[in-house]
Amino acid sequence: MTRTLDPANKTAPASVGLVWRVIPPGLYGGRASTLVERSALVNRRGWFVLVGGAFEPILFLWSLGLGFGQFVASVAGPDGRPVSYAAFVAPALLAASAMNGAVYDATFNVFFKFKYAKLYDAMLATPMGPLDIAMGEIAWALLRGGLYSAGFLGVMLAMGLIASPWALLALPAALLVAFAFAAVGMAATTFMRSWQDFDLVQLAVLPMFLFSTTFFPLSVYPGWLQTVVTWTPLYHAIELMRGLTLGVVGWGMLGHVAYFAVLAAVGTVVAARRLGSLLLD
């Protein structure tokens, strides 16, 4: 065997300060990006599936204009002024698809790789640590989600459903939302024992999709139920997107942003630590 490896490559990454206090040493090898590289390699042949992911939201948008919008001429927008039904629902679907994509990637896909393909076991025989894995998987989910969201916003623009240049910020907002859902989903996945437990994921995601003001405004609910709905993460995501694409923007939005930033941080740390204790027993 010839020795071609540069010794400089063998040194550990530079210390990351604060992170070490939350994440025990040995969990991070500074190579999360190579996991993204792997995902890209795997999906190079599956580009069709990637493109297909954009197909669904387009169908939804189309059916909004053709069908649902014919029943409902206008709905009360974020600031109380009426907006067309399609313009009301489209940003909500953007938020929901950011959630769905991220949750799918971070739960089903991760569980499969973890439990069946034993992919992470193989990675942990390299300098990569559980935090690299968590960050790498989340990053890939974000890349994919970002691609879909950009496509979705493009279709919204083409259909005249964007009312303000603030909509440009909807893309980073979608990424933040996806980040939070991916991190929390992945943390939850580390507690799953079998496929049957994934029904709980469905049980969380589906009612949220249907009832977090995606298809009708909050005012439909009686008072106490309104409060419950406002606690759900998807509600915050929808508020954020709706405000941005309809141009109803205020400082209050930073509250939503903070909400997701916290979810993302907590989710990532829990996911990495749990993966660590599961894989490094």
Binding site: N9, K10, T11, A12, P13, P25, G26, Y28, G29, G30, R38, L41, V42, A117, K118, L119, D121, A122, L124, A125, T126, P127, M128, G129
Partner: peptide, 21 residues
């Protein structure tokens, strides 16, 4: 851990090759 693993090779009991590649 990461520094040591950089210099060793591991062949696990059960093959965990990447079946997608």
């Amino acid at each position: 851990g990461p520094r040591i693993r950089a210099r060793i090779g591991v062949v696990p009991q059960l093959d965990n090759l990447d079946l997608e590649l």
